[in-house]
Design a protein around this nucleic acid. Structure first.
Lengths: 170, 170
DNA sequence: CACTCTTGGTTCAAGTTTGAAACAAACCTA
DNA sequence: TAGGTTTGTTTCAAACTTGAACCAAGAGTG
């Protein structure tokens, strides 16, 4: 099978995509490291917890939400726990599972730093996009995510997939 | 000044964006680690060199192209050199500068692994996007990149910005 | 020329990520 | 219920990234 190389148009898109994602992640990381003392991923972990009814999530669910490996999460939660922003609790029903729980202090850090973060996201992205572009971006990205998740999902039928909607900006 | 939170639409876009970029980078990294024994960034370094007339680039220029810090690049080139895929050469005119040069072996690795990589990029991204979406994606991303680069550029007037076009997929 | 500033690059320690391996607790299933 | 598989999580070493500090070589200036 002979390779289907990228068309020039696709190449431009791919390169721009790579450059943009690198630069954005970098800018986000730097700002959060400055103002919250943690990289974006760690902030997202706190944010995800905060959006949950009890501000707690099983490790696996948290990993699923943040799109990272469990091992990476273990480390991250370890650090956040050391910082006092998260507490671990183990599940009474399933003794394998453990929960990450957002502490009061963690919530405070989040509330204190969220405005700066949102402002940054705006100035990096949304302040320069038209309404249509925001929609386009969402559509493109959700498409990608869906396909990528399908691959690894238990395949056909499945538990009535429990999805919750969520506020705020991770 | 009261925070301008993200609208629900913007939030959805932001979350989808984060999820997509994480998942894509991950998938790309895994495939390249498998088939080329290196993460995406390292592959990009080789790719960038290969697109250059003499297959060589000053460290700083290479860092600029790949959007990473010089220190990160130093490390990466160190490893690629150890692997024999890159050779360093120093510049005769400016004794501070050094070049990274793609070796013959490096070129071979690139040629051997490029098809698989492109196929992967296609299946992750382009096979599922319409022509319009490819254009939209490019437009959105180049916009972001331009703004982010302007900030750090020497500002007003500037050397007649030497940009070269380039083939292939990094 | 001396002085200062900038530029190109590396170094180093501390922090993070990766991926495979290890464990233990649930879950089958004959 | 014993035996085997899956699931939830951690561990560990090796690899990678970060950012500040450093060093040397060019540039600009009086």
């Amino acid at each position: 099978m002979t390779t289907r190389w990228l068309t020039p148009k696709e190449q431009r898109a791919w390169r721009a995509y790579i450059a943009a994602t690198f630069l954005v992640e970098d800018a986000i990381d730097r700002q959060l490291q400055q103002d919250a003392g943690m990289p974006h991923l760690y902030y997202s972990i706190l944010a995800n917890l905060s959006e949950t009814p009890e501000r707690r999530l099983r490790m696996t669910d948290l990993a699923e939400r943040t799109k990272i490996t469990r091992s990476r999460l273990t480390y991250a939660v370890g650090r956040l726990e050391k910082d006092g922003l998260i507490r671990r609790e183990n599940c009474r029903w399933d003794k394998r599972s453990s929960f990450a729980v957002l502490t009061e202090e963690g919530m405070e850090v989040l509330e204190r730093t969220a405005p700066g973060h949102v402002e940054n996201v705006r100035s990096l992205l949304f302040d320069h996009l038209t309404e249509e572009q925001v929609e386009q971006l969402e559509e493109i990205c959700t498409g990608i995510v869906q396909r990528l998740q399908e691959d690894e999902r238990p395949t056909p039928d499945e538990v009535p997939w429990r999805r919750r909607s969520s506020p705020s900006c991770s």
